[in-house]
Design a protein around this nucleic acid. Structure first.
Lengths: 341, 341
DNA sequence: TTGAAAGCGCTAACAA
DNA sequence: TTGTTAGCGCTTTCAA
């Protein structure tokens, strides 16, 4: 069995009676190489389907042109969209992308960070696993002169060399959503808030509170629920709300799944959405457009977030120190919160 | 500014008064190294946070332990789920994953294949772009002794060295779905089939026809629609079906989006689902569980497909010649097709 | 404008 | 059990 020989620069050099260095230079378009030589080299390379060995080049240069991405998981709506943005921007900038998932597990997160470091990536884009409390594994990254950009789920107080972040302005999104509901005439707006130890939920909750107060409405603790967010809990929560002496005339949910659950209960109870109770969710999941009525939701600019994360990383690699980027979300008004004029 | 020196095997060797080879062997658990030396090496490696340079190792070994994945896009439901399966299996088998998307464009597909080859991947898992007609760019892959596994969207007649495939048995999925509808008492079953030039749609269509005939029902051309599948076309198609002299008592749609469209029209027209008209979709998209009623659908075993693709690749790399794998889909019966007993 | 030589960090014969 | 040596394929001084 003959060795699986892929054509190398040395091969080209031999065939053309040139030195490897010249061939290498010709291929990378070095200005000091004569046009004729360049032409000869390129022609042969083309003809033999020559593919340069990135590994060798990277080893020699000390630059891999690869960036690592570490997300809690790659399914659902949000992360695939962000990763899509990352992939597109990275490819435009001439970088490859290596993707890992932590499955919301710190141990795997740690392992994956090592893996990416071993692969000699030039930078890492991370969205933290929900179980991450200790951040020591990221120190190693920065010591190794590898860029680090957190997105969406970030380490709050992690200013540091070669580190930046991209987040969504959850506060503004919630504020927009609630302001919109008030504009539709709603006065008792419930909030399915999610567990407040997560910063995204905390910020959305604050946006909710501030929007109410800014319009002269006093938040009512009875209208606020802090259960984990899911279809079932959204439904359960709505049932409780309907039994209040003064039930709400709107619901702002911190995620879309819970909003669906709430809406199903409303419909089953014979309440009209949006006329009796208006509903707004958060994340702009694909299914929000498919329920009946379609659910208004806050779009998280996933794609933009991915692109921005890559851009931040490239700035870090140029030794700039870009401040964290905060993206402004966009409220998409659909039937669930649009009352007749 | 001091050079960004990451600890190397040579460093460890110097510090321990050993040769690099011994250190290397100790690190990889070579049996011929004394336990004491191993312990010393490991301890120092730990202490200095030593991370081996994969690039160098891969170059030397001629094996990158990286596999490439090329999909039309990484958003939506199907591909992220498959990629998830790939990532998990690959990681378990000690491989890294490099992901590219073709955006349904042959040119990008070609470019990405080259990119992956340059990165010296050991194998590539591909789902074809819908515009791919010419397959020359894949010949190069196999000539380079790189494994090639097609999944979902495959090259039909591409038997070849170091090549395999994983697909879903679309025919069986459709057959199951239609048989189920017949079992629910449906007799005039419409089919939103999608354009039949795509093999997946063709196979599902055939499954539909055969299931009908197997139960003594003659297919009615008036009940079959071949428009591209979307929310709008599903709705449009349903409107037409309702105007037939003998409208259908069930709809089997080749995808879930069109099923939602059809169901919205049914509800708007005051038909009860499933009692007047039962509905079954295909793909088990997340939103099928969220509509009202929830839509029965055929699950495509995305996760399994990803894992299997990796397994097939590893077999190819062991010089086996595994036959293509055909996965059997699973019908998930939900409210949209479940009539009272 | 081109070539010679060295070396990125690692591993694997072969030797001792 | 450990060390010596060579080289994976590429880039990059330095010299011609």
């Amino acid at each position: 069995m003959k060795p699986p020989h892929r054509t190398s620069i040395t091969d080209l050099a031999r065939a053309l009676n040139l030195s490897p260095s010249t061939v290498s230079r010709a291929l990378t378009g070095h200005p000091q190489v004569s046009e004729t030589t360049k032409a000869r080299v390129r022609e042969l390379a083309e003809q033999l389907h020559f593919q340069p060995n990135q590994l060798a080049a990277a080893l020699r240069r000390g630059r891999s042109t690869t960036i690592g991405v570490l997300v809690p998981y790659i399914t659902g709506h949000f992360f695939p969209e962000v990763v899509n943005g990352i992939a597109i921007e990275a490819s435009q900038q001439g970088y490859n992308v290596m993707i890992c998932q932590s499955n919301e597990d710190v141990a795997q997160e740690k392992k994956n960070i090592e893996l990416l470091m071993n692969a000699q990536v030039e930078g890492i884009l991370v969205s933290l696993s929900s179980t991450t409390q200790d951040f020591a594994h990221f120190d190693a990254v920065r010591q190794a002169e590898v860029g680090l950009v957190f997105f969406d789920r970030i380490v709050e107080d992690m200013a540091g060399p070669r580190t930046s972040a991209v987040v969504l302005d959850d506060y503004a999104g919630a504020y927009q959503a609630v302001t919109h509901l008030i504009g539709q005439g709603c006065r008792r707006i419930a909030h399915i808030a999610g567990p407040l130890h997560l910063n995204i939920h905390r910020n959305r909750h604050q946006g909710y509170l501030d929007a109410l107060r800014a319009h002269g409405l006093e938040p009512d603790e009875a209208l606020i629920n802090r259960q984990p967010l899911g279809l079932g809990t959204g439904a359960e929560c709505m049932r409780q709300l309907l039994q209040l002496p003064a039930p709400p005339d709107a619901v702002f949910s911190s995620n879309d799944m819970a909003a669906v659950g709430a809406m199903q209960v409303l419909k089953a109870a014979g309440r009209r959405v949006p006329d009796d109770v208006a509903v707004v969710g958060f994340s702009n999941e694909a299914f929000t457009a498919l329920t009946e009525p379609a659910i208004s939701s806050v779009d998280q600019r996933c794609h933009q977030m991915g692109r921005t994360a890559v851009q931040q990383l490239l700035r870090l690699l140029r030794d700039e120190t870009p401040p964290p980027v905060v993206l402004t979300p966009e409220l998409l008004v659909r039937a669930s919160s649009q009352r007749q004029a």
